[in-house]
């Protein structure tokens, strides 16, 4: 139990312990989580510098070179339009990561804020917000995201909004239950007794206590967000063609031509699986460290 608590302390207060020590401690205690972090870092590198590593344009057709396997010229092969798969994969990494991080920042972020407000004010406000969340939760993720993108139209921003809204209820619920516990603590009473206003109490005293459970939810939401984007793109409601996204590369011709050139389907699928696997491993490790009670669930 003591090591578990010190885990939580090291991650909770990195400034006092030294960032390097936290990192090395995390690697030795959570090797799988570190592997997940490594996958995420590789993906970020792919997204940032990947497109610069090749002269091929991800959108340019070269029909003479279509449906090729990996070669010295086209490192990962080409698709049905003769587009270079390596450069498309790198651009796809950008989209996946962008959708992942931005939708979590927007969706889980606003869900957390709503949770703080809902839990703190309680009563009618809380009741109304929670019924709304119940309703949002009762529509499966992909269906809800589909309905929202259908309503707003398919472009990158709307996809991020749709995948974000889907995450709101879960983040809200987790943060709210934490708020309900923290609300009763003495330091909140103390803050109120010296005349702190609601916004100050929520921001200064309650929100910091909700960061750990929120982080757990947010990291697990990242993998789901990436998969949801891929699914949306696959069924044609995602990032509009010809913009390369991993899900979109598996749709359309990727579906019919993968018999002739399996590489077209292998790379994006593998990348998606690995990326989500990385986020899941990292998320599990974060959860174990921040909340030892949940270990192994």
């Amino acid at each position: 139990m003591t090591t578990q608590q010190s885990d939580a302390l090291t991650l909770g207060r990195p400034r006092t312990e030294g960032a390097l020590k936290v990192v090395s401690g995390f690697i030795s205690r959570k090797p799988l989580g570190a592997a997940g972090a490594l996958i995420i870092i590789i993906m970020v590198v792919m997204a940032v510098v990947g497109p610069l590593s090749t002269d091929w344009d991800p959108l340019e057709w070269t029909l003479a070179d279509k449906l090729e396997g990996p070669s010295g010229e086209h490192w990962l092969g080409t698709d049905d339009k003769g587009r270079d798969l390596w450069s498309r994969m790198m651009s796809g990494a950008r989209i996946s990561l962008m959708v992942g991080f931005l939708s979590v920042a927007f969706g889980s972020g606003s869900g957390g804020v709503i949770g703080v407000v809902s839990g703190w004010y309680g009563g009618k406000v809380d009741n109304a917000i929670q019924r709304l969340m119940d309703a949002l939760m009762s529509i499966p993720t992909l269906i809800l995201a589909m309905a929202i993108t259908a309503a707003l139209g398919t472009n990158l921003l709307n996809i991020i909004i749709a995948i974000g809204i889907v995450q709101v209820p879960r983040a809200n619920r987790v943060v709210r239950s934490q708020v309900l516990a923290v609300k009763e603590s003495q330091y909140v009473d103390a803050a109120r007794s010296i005349g702190a206003v609601n916004v100050r109490i929520m921001g200064q005293h309650i929100a910091p206590q909700c960061v750990a459970p929120w982080l757990i939810i947010a990291t697990s939401a990242l993998g789901i967000a990436i998969l949801t984007e891929a699914s949306l793109s696959f069924i044609g409601l995602g990032v509009p063609q010809p913009e390369p996204s991993w899900g979109g590369m598996l749709a359309g011709p990727g579906r019919t031509d993968f018999v002739r050139n399996p590489w077209m389907a292998i790379w994006p699928g593998l990348a998606l699986s690995l990326a989500v696997y990385g986020f899941n491993l990292f998320g599990d490790a974060i959860r174990d460290v921040l909340d030892p009670r949940l270990r192994g669930t």
Binding site: L227, S231, L250, G269, L272, S273, V276, Y277
Partner: peptide
Amino acid sequence: VGFSVPIFWLGF
């Protein structure tokens, strides 16, 4: 792994 593999890719 089951959590990570996209359903449609597994279908392929």
